[in-house]
């Protein structure tokens, strides 16, 4: 079934990214062949209803993972509030409450860099709108290992700091508006 050359998708975003992430998870079909891991900055205490709202919109199963939960297709994993989310070498997820990175916990760099080590060139990494440079280094790590990298076109971003920071560090495989990102993802078979 999964004939894709890729094994997983990781997405990072902060300010303004909730709307884009909602559109993405709403657009993915129930038989989408890859697991999706999302790391979003959010206010520490905005917890209730966040993942539930995404899950209601999606035909996939949107969850906040438990420590050591295996990554499986059909699921969209969202970094839990106030935890860092890492991908381990055996494609399980792990959590950490270690110090914030660039004032962020969860930190997108941690999720993206650890995923890059696990899936190397079999990974798609996406950086969305956001007000922090966290995520740029992680996306570069994905690019350095031959993964496919997408940066949201800063002209379409609510807050362009995050995509711009990524574009300063690397030449992504593609720079796309939100609809272009969705079309790309839907083309994965």
């Amino acid at each position: 079934m999964a004939t894709s050359q890729y094994k997983a998708i990781v997405i990072g975003g902060s300010a303004g990214s909730y709307a884009v992430v909602s559109k993405i998870v709403a657009a993915l079909p129930p038989d989408f062949p890859l697991p999706v891991i999302i790391c979003m900055h959010r206010l520490k205490h905005v917890r209730a209803g966040f993942v539930e709202a995404l899950n209601d919109k999606s035909q996939l199963n949107v969850i906040e993972p438990y420590d050591k939960q295996p990554v499986e297709r059909g699921n969209v994993y969202v970094a839990p509030a106030n935890y860092h989310l890492f991908v381990e070498y055996d494609a399980t997820l792990s959590l950490s409450i270690e110090e914030p990175h660039l004032f962020c916990r969860p930190a997108i760099d941690h999720t993206l860099s650890s995923a890059a080590k696990t899936w190397r060139d079999k990974l798609i990494g996406i950086i969305l709108t956001g007000a922090n440079k966290d995520g740029a280094q992680g996306l570069k790590d994905i690019a350095d290992r031959g993964g496919y990298t997408i940066v949201q076109d800063p002209a379409t971003a609510d807050v362009p700091t995050m995509p711009r920071a990524a574009l300063r560090l690397l030449q992504p495989s593609a720079t796309l508006p939100p609809q272009g990102i969705i079309d790309f993802l839907k083309s994965i078979r």
Binding site: F86, V87, E88, Y89, S96, E98
Partner: peptide
């Protein structure tokens, strides 16, 4: 300790 965590630290 979990490999990823310890190697990172």
């Amino acid at each position: 300790y979990s490999t990823n965590s310890i190697s990172r630290r």
